[in-house]
Structure formats: structure tokens, C-alpha cells
């Protein structure tokens, strides 16, 4: 199977879906002439011309709304935010327009749109450019929220998102764009709302998504080697809808759980996972579910402080020792 980067997997998905459906177009800052701020859209302008690959001014609220308006009359826009930090300017259109249109029109107007771009922290970009905001969007009924961790999932989920008749918030990761993995040639989709067990284990479940999948996998390797603890790694892939079946099944097997996420702790994705577990797997829990999150602070610039703020394998291992009563 060909090995490609996460970036190119996304590029393939866009290219294939634009080939497949003439209603699909890509709009955003620097997507065309510049070839994409992170080169996800490389070559698309040449392949599809400026009718379908549209460079915008820096006006997130405006072009997000134009995307929603185009979706109201049946087009299938893919709106690229250079990063999700800038998408905060467009939250009104994502939440008040895209998410609610179907409901408040009594089912008349679906909004088949994808909002995509990198989220989370990269390296030393400081407070305004380093944040994982998936829980903001996941809070809103009417939106779907996905955050793939691997090239395979990135391509399959983006194709599924573009074909979905609902607004999908698609969170990529700047630090993931160069990640490599096997991606089959040809058409496939990864269903939205289905988690993936990335590694099987029996002693503890590590629940993660996006960049923290790597963190969890590294922790799992060390847990096995150093402490003889067998960790199961569950990649949520979709935050909303949340695949509670897979989560609950895993924890019923392992009896212990640590949620690893890049967002802040308060009202984070992990809080929702913990809520599901305490209701649906209460009698299977041998310890309280613990969470490893970003520190509850704006992201510092300093390299060491930044490293300390992010989830890492050491913090995951410490949490696992606690839930497995190994301290």
C-alpha cells in the first residue's frame, strides 16, 4: 500500500471529491495561487481553476457565511480556515447559521458544508495560535466534529465529511501534516461517528484523538515495556457523534480509563467521555477515570513551559499508574 503524508492524504480526498461532484468547491485564504498555507491544496487551482478554488480576503466571518449561503442553495462548499484560531471570528456563522438552519427551517434547508483547517498547538506559536477548540464545536447540536490522527483516517473522513449533508467541523493538526501512513489507492470513506481501536490491551483504556493518539501510543509502548501494563488505545476520530459503544466496550474489558486530549480540562472532550463512562460503565470501573489535558492556562511561548503545558507520555503513564493503583 502506498505510504503518503497526512497532508497529501487530505489533498487526495479534496481532489477526488471535486472530481466526483461538480458541486464541491474549496474556498479560503491562500488556498489557490499560494497553494495553501500548509500546502494541503497544492495543485488544486491548476486542476480545477479559479471557479472552484477560490482565494478569499482575510474575512473569516464573511467567507464562512458565503459558504453557508452557497450550501443553502445546494452547493457543497469546503471552507478552509488557515487555522481554527482565526475561525473564532466565524463562530457566529458556524453556530448560528450552519448548525441551526435545518432545525429552524423545520427541516427544509440542510447545510452540506465542511469547515476545515489545522487546530491545536504547533511549536512556540504562543497563546493566540495554540489551542484545541473541538469541545466548543462539539457542544453544538447540528454540527458534526471530526479530528483524524492518521493519513488513512484523514482521507477517509474528509471524503465522508464532504459527502455528509450536515455541517462538519474538520480539525486537522499542523504537527500531523507530515505524519506518514499507508493510504490505499482509490475511493474509500471512514464513517463519521466510529472510533478506532488503534492498539488492543487489557489493563487500561487510553482514549484520545488527533495529535494525542501518538502520545497515547507512545505511553502504551512504554507501559508494556516498563511496567508490564497492557494499554488499549482508542482513537475517537469523531468527537460528535461520539462512539460511546466502542469506549464503553473497551472500559468494560479493562476496568480503567485515562482520557488524553489536547484541549483545556474545563468542559473538555474528556469531560464528556467521563460522563458517558460513569453512566454506562459504572459497575466496570475499578478507579475514577483520569484526564490528561493541556495545562489550564493560555499557551506560553517559552519552549520548556510550552512542553510542560502539553499532554505527553510521562503524564499519561503517571495517570495510568494511578488508575491501576501502581503507585
Amino acid at each position: 500500500m502506498p505510504v503518503v503524508t497526512y497532508r497529501d492524504a487530505l489533498n487526495q480526498a479534496l481532489r477526488e471529491e471535486m472530481d466526483r461532484d461538480p458541486n464541491v468547491f474549496l474556498m479560503g485564504e491562500e488556498v489557490g495561487v499560494y497553494q495553501g498555507a500548509y500546502k494541503v491544496s497544492r495543485g488544486l487551482l491548476e486542476a480545477f481553476n479559479e471557479r472552484r478554488v477560490i482565494d478569499t480576503p482575510i474575512a473569516e466571518l464573511g467567507f464562512a457565511g458565503i459558504g453557508v449561503g452557497a450550501a443553502m442553495v445546494g452547493l457543497r462548499p469546503v471552507i478552509e480556515f488557515m487555522t481554527w484560531n482565526f475561525a473564532l471570528l466565524a463562530v457566529d456563522q458556524v453556530v448560528n447559521s450552519a448548525a441551526k438552519m435545518l432545525y429552524m427551517s423545520g427541516g427544509q434547508i440542510p447545510i452540506p458544508i465542511v469547515f476545515r483547517g489545522p487546530g491545536g498547538a504547533a511549536l512556540q506559536l504562543a497563546a493566540q495560535h495554540s489551542q484545541a477548540l473541538e469541545s466548543w464545536y462539539a457542544h453544538v447540536p447540528g454540527l458534526k466534529v471530526v479530528a483524524p490522527a492518521t493519513p488513512y483516517d484523514a482521507k477517509g473522513l474528509l471524503k465522508a465529511a464532504i459527502r455528509d449533508d450536515n455541517p462538519v467541523v474538520f480539525l486537522e493538526g499542523e504537527m500531523l501534516y507530515n505524519a506518514k501512513g499507508e493510504v490505499p489507492d482509490g475511493d474509500y470513506t471512514v464513517p463519521i461517528g466510529v472510533a478506532d481501536v488503534k492498539r488492543e490491551g487489557s489493563d487500561v483504556t487510553l482514549i484520545c484523538h488527533s495529535k494525542t493518539v501518538t502520545v497515547a501510543e507512545r505511553a502504551a509502548e512504554r507501559l508494556a515495556a516498563e511496567l508490564d501494563v497492557s494499554a488499549e488505545v482508542v482513537d475517537l476520530r469523531s468527537i460528535r457523534p461520539l462512539d460511546t459503544e466502542t469506549i464503553v466496550t473497551s472500559v468494560q474489558k479493562t476496568n480503567r480509563c485515562v482520557v488524553v486530549e489536547e484541549g483545556w480540562p474545563f468542559c473538555g472532550v474528556g469531560a464528556q467521555v467521563v460522563d458517558e463512562l460513569q453512566r454506562r460503565a459504572f459497575d466496570s470501573l475499578d478507579a475514577p477515570v483520569l484526564r490528561v489535558t493541556s495545562a489550564d492556562v493560555p499557551m506560553p511561548y517559552n519552549k520548556k513551559l510550552e512542553r510542560a503545558a502539553k499532554p505527553n507520555p510521562d503524564r499519561v503513564i503517571a495517570a495510568v499508574k494511578q488508575v491501576a493503583y501502581l503507585d
Binding site: F25, R51, L61, G62, F63, A64, G65, I66, G67, V68, G69, A70, A71, M72, V73, G74, L75, D92, Q93, N96, S97
Partner: peptide, 18 residues
Amino acid sequence: IVGAHLPLAAGAAFASRY
């Protein structure tokens, strides 16, 4: 939401051009 439907209208006009 005051003003929020202006981009939506422009989006429908965009679709018309498209």
C-alpha cells in the same frame, strides 16, 4: 442575528455565478 444573513445572501449569489 443582526447582519449575519448578509454573507448568506452573498453565498446564494455566489452559487448563482458558480
